[in-house]
Design a protein around this nucleic acid. Structure first.
Length: 816
DNA sequence: CTGGATACTTAGTATAGCTATG
DNA sequence: CATAGCTATACTAAGTATCCAG
């Protein structure tokens, strides 16, 4: 309603014109080649993050046109709270400030603290003993109809349950179908306890290293080297990828080489003193692995199938688990294999050795009464835990960044489904608060307190441009930023109100946008950039995601920075869908849906590298379109040959017959002929191949020659047509028949053109991420039902499984 | 508060696997 | 009926959020 600027759905704010600005405009290139990172070469940005700031900027200074100035002055007095975070003296201020700010907020419902009552009762924090705690509390509050029967008898299920299960899956199938647990009909979720019982069979370890054949060796300084097996494995990791970009990256090389030497030493060294990476020659190793790949590819269909079945059979027990007595799928039950760490962007640790994970490093999490799956022979589990407040089944620590890795439920599991559902409900709830929040931060943009002003400005950016929170990162990680970690050099202010963002965000994906901001925001940003700040300094030096989120919590329970992204993505999708007319074919509607999806993807800056054959395949489609047009015109010319008077009578219809120049026509014909010849040759070869295997006589060369001559004849005819501009119709052609043919071509032309547009529009935008994570699936379901588009056209099989809850609960009139 | 640890979501890419096509 | 050309899935890196100890 209110047309005030704040209300505009963010996505449209900047690219009003409706049609998205071509991405190319927004950022000309993909980030940076990974290897431009290291301290060395890039002097371009002399400003790696400066952690400390020289001196207190002070809010105002002489920022003449900043009206709040006067006040700013006073507030400058309590400069004490005004220090950048990093410098703050530990004590006091925090409370003061909050106290101050509280009076203002009208909207903030300060509830959440108390709401937790429920969980409190049940949960004694982490220690909850699964069985007992579980059962009483969340304990299957409402077992929906289905479910019950089945395997209840064998609660510890899996192990035994599994084996017999396999053979008769067929029969049980429909049974299972109807007894699927519909958690979304069972109501309520929250609560600290995540499960009542959890039984599973542990994890799958990667196969042991298979040594190279004796004749395949690393060469050093021109000579073969006999490496200890441990080192050979590491050399093999690198050798197998010398044809990739990673292998050219100096950082990758250096990290690999260090770790390689380390492993080599651990293993007792070898007969050669390896000191120089450049003297290492991996080609033999590479060729070996390359051959292996070829060999695998060359396997017969049956062989491949058999192998696959074997693998599946072996993995079956790990693929499923029993959650609260119901069978659920596990996501990543395979322990990650060793290899070289492929960090994205300019990651300081890229190329380091990711070591093999041993059972001793693995912690299992399951019910107390679940039989502990046997560890691999000769090994022990690191730990077996029974924590029902978390949703992971196994965990280990990775050696690159010392992070935890988890084995979790699959996306189609109830656990994941529930939290997904919750996420979208929280985002939907933001609808009810967004107006107040926007009002509030608009006001706070002028706050006298620097921290509040930064907070408001950051919120504005997060809300309008869908920025991520932007937590602090270490020196041993890629230098990427989000809102709170934006630095001086990441935005350029262009009066009157234009801001140019240019920074690397998550995954080192470049965020480049030139946008208009409100005058006040522009002023604020100028203040935040004011001297003595310089490149390398944080723009928002008094806030961080934690502070921001704390504030968000005061507006609404469950509100954090990321919720804005979800909200704005889904909101944008809803708005875009609302603009779609319910008309046209299914395919056309799908295209429109994708276009809506695309606006969301662009909002969220979801990119992908354009595939290397993109240009090629665009060219191909373009050629196809040209050819179709040419054919269409040919048909029309035929009509005129039959009935010359038509040209005047239906001038419009025949208008286009001169649209293609003779040169173009010749080009099209040339391509067509070349293609036909090519095909003829291939067919000839293929046929002979077949005859050979059937031990039949081969076709003579003359047959091919004959065919070729025929094609040449065609070519001559075309050439004549082009010359005269007239096309001789076929014997039995009639104007009607030709018209019908034109129709068919016309429609093929349209689909092809649509296809081309879609391809180009999507070449560097990734729709998947938003569909998977940001767009409330109920919107898609709504679209499907309202527009009569089968859900299969919008959700792939896995997505349908993941979003089963949405498919079964949303109608044609569902609203985000 | 800070920093680290933990647990969970979000992300692009490598590749397995499928489908159109010729 | 292979194979090119893609699309869907698997994989795992890289974020966010929150909690806890010092």
């Amino acid at each position: 309603m209110s047309s005030s600027e704040d209300d505009i759905p963010l996505s449209q704010v900047h690219d009003d014109s409706g049609d998205e600005m071509p991405l190319a405009k927004r950022h000309q290139k993909r980030p940076t080649p990974p290897y431009t990172n290291s301290e060395d070469e890039d002097e371009v940005v002399p400003t790696k993050r400066r952690k400390t700031i020289k001196r207190e900027p002070g809010v105002n200074d002489s920022d003449s046109d900043d009206e709040p100035l006067s006040k700013v002055k006073d507030m400058d007095v309590d400069s004490e709270d005004d220090m950048p975070l990093s410098k703050k003296a530990p004590k006091t201020k925090a409370k003061k400030e909050t106290a101050k700010s509280t009076p203002k907020t009208k909207s903030a419902p300060k509830k959440e603290k108390s709401t937790t009552k429920k969980e409190k009762s049940t949960t004694t924090k982490s220690k909850a003993t699964d069985k007992s705690a579980s059962t009483k509390k969340a304990a299957v509050k409402k077992e929906p109809k289905a479910t019950k029967v089945k395997k209840e008898a064998t609660p510890n299920g899996l192990v035994k349950d599994e084996t017999p299960a396999t053979p008769n899956t067929q029969s049980t199938n429909e049974e299972e179908e109807e007894e699927k647990y519909k958690w979304w009909e069972a109501g309520d979720l929250d609560g600290e306890v995540k499960w009542d019982s959890l039984h599973h069979n542990g994890v799958v370890f990667p196969p042991p290293y298979e040594p190279l054949p004796k004749h395949v060796k690393l060469y050093y300084d021109g000579k073969p080297v006999s490496l200890p097996i441990e080192a050979e494995e590491v050399a093999g990791f690198f050798g197998a990828m010398i044809n990739t970009d990673h292998a050219q990256n100096p950082v990758f090389q250096k990290n690999f080489f260090n770790d390689f030497k380390e492993v080599l030493e651990e293993a007792g060294g070898c007969d050669v003193d390896i000191t120089d990476f450049d003297k290492m020659d991996f080609t033999k190793i590479f060729n070996h692995y390359d051959q292996e790949r070829e060999r695998k590819k060359a396997m017969t269909r049956d062989e491949k199938k058999r192998l696959k079945e074997e693998k599946e059979k072996f993995e079956e027990p790990y693929k499923y688990c029993m959650l609260n007595g119901r069978k659920e799928m596990v996501g990543n039950f395979r322990i990650e294999p060793p290899g070289l760490f492929r960090g994205r962007g300019a990651h300081p640790k890229t190329g380091k050795l990711k070591r093999r994970v041993m059972p001793e490093q693995v912690t299992l999490n399951m019910s107390k009464d679940c039989p502990v799956p046997p560890p691999p022979p000769g090994h022990e589990w690191g730990e077996v835990r029974h924590d029902n407040t978390v949703t992971w089944l196994a965990m280990w620590k990775e050696n690159i960044a010392d992070n935890q890795k988890y084995v979790r439920f699959a996306a189609n599991s109830s656990v994941k489904g529930q939290s997904d559902f919750k996420k979208f409900e929280t985002a939907r709830n933001l609808k009810n608060h967004i107006e107040d929040i926007r009002k509030d931060y608009t006001k706070m943009l002028k706050s006298e307190v620097m921290q509040e002003r930064q907070m408001a400005t950051a919120t504005y950016l997060i809300d309008k441009f869908a920025l991520r929170a932007g937590g602090e990162k270490g020196d041993d990680e890629a230098d990427t930023v989000g809102c709170c970690s934006l630095r001086f050099e990441h935005l350029t202010l262009q009066p009157p109100h234009t801001v140019i963002f240019d920074f690397l965000g998550k995954d080192s994906i470049r965020f480049y946008q030139e946008v208009e901001v409100s005058p006040q925001v522009f002023k604020n940003l100028r203040i935040f950039k004011k001297a003595p700040k310089q490149p390398g300094d944080d723009l928002f030096d008094r806030i961080n995601p934690t502070i921001l989120n704390k504030k968000f919590q005061t507006y609404m329970k469950g509100l954090s920075a990321k919720v804005f992204r979800t909200y704005n993505a889904s909101k944008t999708m809803q708005d875009q869908i609302d603009l779609i007319e319910n008309e046209g074919t299914v395919a056309e509607k799908v295209v429109k849906f994708n276009a809506a999806n695309r606006t969301v993807a662009i909002l969220c800056n979801h990119q992908r590298t354009v595939s290397k054959n993109h240009g090629e395949s665009v060219q191909k489609i373009t050629d196809k379109i040209k050819e179709l047009m040419w054919q269409k015109i040919r048909l029309k010319k035929m009509m005129l040959s039959l009935e010359p008077t038509l040209k005047k009578k239906e001038a419009k219809y025949f208008h286009e017959i001169n649209d293609i120049s003779k040169e173009d026509q010749q080009q099209i014909v040339d391509r067509l002929i070349a293609r036909q010849k090519d095909q003829a040759e291939k067919k000839f070869a293929r046929d002979n191949e077949k005859l050979k295997s059937e031990k039949k006589p081969l076709l003579e060369k003359s047959v091919l020659k004959e065919r070729m001559e025929k094609i040449d004849e065609q070519a001559k005819e075309y050439a004549a047509e082009i010359k005269t501009g007239a096309v001789e119709p076929k014997a039995k052609a009639t104007v009607e028949k030709l018209k019908a043919q034109v129709e068919t071509i016309e429609s093929r032309l349209q689909t092809t053109q649509l296809q081309l547009k879609d391809k180009e529009d999507n070449s560097e935008v990734s729709l998947g991420t938003s569909k998977l994570n940001y767009i409330d699936p109920r919107l898609t379901v709504m679209f499907s039902k309202k527009f009569n588009v089968p859900i299969e056209k919008l959700f792939t099989k896995t997505l349908r499984e993941k979003f089963q809850w949405a498919i079964e609960s949303a109608d044609a009139d569902w609203k985000f």
